[in-house]
Design a protein around this nucleic acid. Structure first.
Length: 272
DNA sequence: AACTAATACAACCGCCGGCTC
DNA sequence: CGAGCCGGCGGTTGTATTAGT
């Protein structure tokens, strides 16, 4: 069924935003907050569609954006999160305060992909390129292995890594069970029995997105001593992947990627 | 200095899922 | 309960900038 366009194309500007449009958008959101994107353009006097306004605000105008180059720590964090989550840019962005999904996506496609390729690592699978993907895939599913992230990024060790730049990420030991999670497919060697716990938001009671966001309702953690499975952690406890009956819970010991240790600045995004 | 290729990144497009009526 | 609306996401494109020749 055809859907009505989000805006009347005939009367909307497209392309790069002008300074004046930016100013209008900023002024409006300062005054009224991020309300209904659909009605915002008209209310703000912008000849843009709501989506365009939202994108401009989220990706560019928001005052809490970090901007500037990605740090080595951020690089490694993105790589590790991507190895777990795949192209879930919004989830990855949820772990990188001040960074947007769009920014991370672009950065991945331009910088990190190349970086991994130069290390001989397939940026999609996070496996060594010369290793046949098929062999690595289904056949190994039943085997249980225990590896660390640093193993997953084996080639990194000689250059900048093994220093566990992301505050202990390298020490995260993951044991694999036979889950069909995307991450498990992507990293067949990884035992992804991880848990999700509040990143930096839940404790601080802020909501960025209203809808499901596993990493926003939970961080990834080692589950060896706790009660819910990776599927639950990803918010899919009703799925067949769920191997437990818990609905997920807080774990005070959580420190995936050193998020609690303050190595990275996991402040609130101040978003509503 | 001029041209071309490569790169970076802002913005758009189409789809999806949750919510509302 | 189902259709439609809306916000959000991921993939892709367009264009400005930079590097190379």
């Amino acid at each position: 069924m055809g859907r009505s366009p989000c805006c009347e194309k005939a009367h909307t500007n497209k392309g790069a935003w002008t300074k004046e449009e930016d100013d209008r958008l900023i002024a409006y959101i300062r005054a009224h907050g991020e309300g209904c994107w659909r009605s915002l353009p008209k209310a703000a006097g912008l000849l843009r569609c709501g989506k365009s306004c939202r994108l401009r605000w989220i990706n560019y105008l928001r005052p809490d954006l970090k901007r500037g180059n990605f740090t080595e720590e951020e690089d490694e964090l993105i790589i590790k999160l991507h190895s777990l989550l795949g192209n879930k840019w919004s989830l990855i962005a949820g772990r990188l305060p001040g960074r947007t999904d769009n920014e991370i996506k672009n950065y991945w496609n331009t910088h990190i992909r190349r970086k991994l390729l130069s290390r001989g690592i397939d940026p999609t699978t996070h496996r060594p390129i010369n290793e046949p993907a098929a062999a690595a895939g289904a056949s190994s599913q039943d085997s249980i292995k225990t590896i660390s992230f640093s193993a997953a990024n084996s080639k990194e060790e000689d250059d900048d890594d093994d220093k566990n730049t992301t505050a202990g990420a390298g020490s995260l030991i993951i044991t694999k069970e036979d889950h069909n999670s995307p991450a498990a497919e992507r990293c067949p060697d990884l035992n992804l029995e991880l848990r999700i716990s509040p990143p930096y938001g839940q404790q601080q009671d802020h909501h960025h997105h209203h809808h499901q966001d596993p990493l926003k309702t939970g961080g990834i953690r080692d589950t060896s001593s706790s009660s819910s499975c990776f599927a639950c952690s990803l918010g899919i406890q009703n799925s067949q992947d769920c191997s437990c009956s818990s609905g997920g819970s807080s774990n005070p010991g959580y420190d995936f990627l050193g998020l609690k240790t303050g190595v990275l600045d996991y402040r609130s995004l101040e978003m509503k």
